[in-house]
Amino acid sequence: MTPAWRNGLRQALFGWLNLALTAPGVYLWLGLPLVLRQHGWSGTAIGLFQLASLPTVFKFLFAMPLDRRGPRRGAYRGWTVGLLLAYAAILCALGWRELLDERWTLFALAAAAALAGTWADVPVNALAIRILPASGRAWAGGIRSMALCLGAIAGGGFMLLAQSRWGWQAPFLIMAGALALGAALTLLVRDGGADPSGEPAPALAAPLRTYFRLDAARRWLPLLALLFPFIGSAWFYLKPLLLDQGLPADRVAWLAGVAGGAVGAAASAVSARGLKRLGPGIAVPVHAAAGFVALLCLAAAVGLHAPPAVLIACALGIAAAMGATAALAFGLMMSHARPGLQALDYGIQSSVFSLTRILAPLAAGLLLDAAGPAWMLAALAAASAGVLLLALRTAPGLRL
């Protein structure tokens, strides 16, 4: 088998793994809010439900055992298989019975699912950074973002339709099966079982501190923290917002879940190509500008009570900006991981990414209940304008 074919198959495997990891989270944090809204949950309650995903903030802690001292340091394949199966088991527990009226049980199991999914994400992407060539990292970021968008189709569209047609249990069993298949396919990957450098691992507190002192990290981490959460918040509340604007639930699932996910996936592919051709100095401000324009258009459409066709067009614009921005962020995250510490460095970046991704929707939910959807979207647009200014200032110093 030629190296090109081998790398292509590896990219396809990591695409499937990221899809299998993404779909449950999308269903819990983006699809399920539509069901919760139908059962009378307020915007604040839905925002607070996001706190169940807090384990994602501590991803750097979960990365530490993977890069620990010893002969099994960096044995990412074994960690991947075990954690994928644990995630599948928790999804089966979530689907054991309907939990819409058992809020604390739903919250606890959702938090356990977030923990398992967060932990599994670390070795999956550390393994990708290790075995994929550096020239393929922009595409790997694009493929991961495409998986996020296809996960939006699966978790935010098809799984909602499966729940509507076959009941509460069906989506969780389907997603657990996808994770189990991913675990089986991962066994076919040759990882080497440990860090190929052969060097002993340093105490992890030292490289953790050192990462934040790197000039590249100091330029990159503020952008990573702010690029996605505002466009991501609009994507998070898009389904409840369209539902509140009078669109029927099935139509919202198809438009925001399926069509929006497809648009986001296409935008991810375009973004990955643009990042390779333009470089981060140009690509980052362009993506920040796209997020600002998309948010401003949706805010205006909601504030002016635009007809459904305009709302749908603006919603698809949000999906495109979300998919493109996610591809950009994931591609650059791979470029800011040090050899031999892929899990730790990826975990640090992902923790920063996740913290703002959680806090922004919570603040947006409070603003939604206090001032309404138009003001919430206007505030997100204003914040994204600040991100654009930051990108124009700091992006030229980034590397790919």
Rank of each mutant, 00 (worst) to 15 (best):
T2E: 04
W5K: 06
N7P: 00
R10S: 09
A12F: 15
W16D: 05
N18H: 14
L19H: 05
A20Q: 08
L21N: 11
L28V: 10
V35F: 13
L36F: 10
G43R: 08
F49Q: 03
S53A: 14
F60R: 03
R72P: 00
R72L: 10
A89H: 01
I90D: 01
C92K: 00
A93V: 08
L94R: 03
G95Q: 04
L99F: 06
D101K: 03
E102C: 01
E102A: 10
R103T: 10
T105S: 06
L106P: 02
A112N: 01
T118G: 15
T118H: 08
V122T: 13
V124C: 12
N125D: 15
A128Y: 10
R137L: 15
A140V: 12
A140P: 00
G142M: 13
G142K: 07
I143V: 15
G155Y: 13
S164G: 14
S164K: 11
R165T: 14
W168M: 11
F172Y: 13
G182K: 07
A184C: 12
L187S: 05
R190I: 11
G192E: 04
A194D: 02
P196K: 07
A203W: 14
L204A: 03
A206D: 12
L214N: 04
A216L: 14
R218A: 03
P229C: 03
G232C: 04
A234K: 06
L238D: 08
K239T: 14
L241I: 15
L243Q: 11
L255W: 15
A262M: 09
G264K: 09
A267E: 09
S268V: 15
K276L: 15
R277S: 12
G281M: 13
I282G: 00
H287N: 07
A288W: 06
A290L: 12
V302G: 01
G303C: 07
L304P: 00
I312S: 05
I312E: 12
A313S: 10
F330P: 01
A337V: 15
A337F: 13
Q349W: 14
T356L: 15
R357E: 10
L359C: 05
L359S: 04
A363D: 00
L367M: 11
A370R: 14
P373A: 15
P373H: 08
A379T: 13
A382S: 06
A382L: 10
A385V: 06
A391H: 04
L392F: 08
A395C: 05
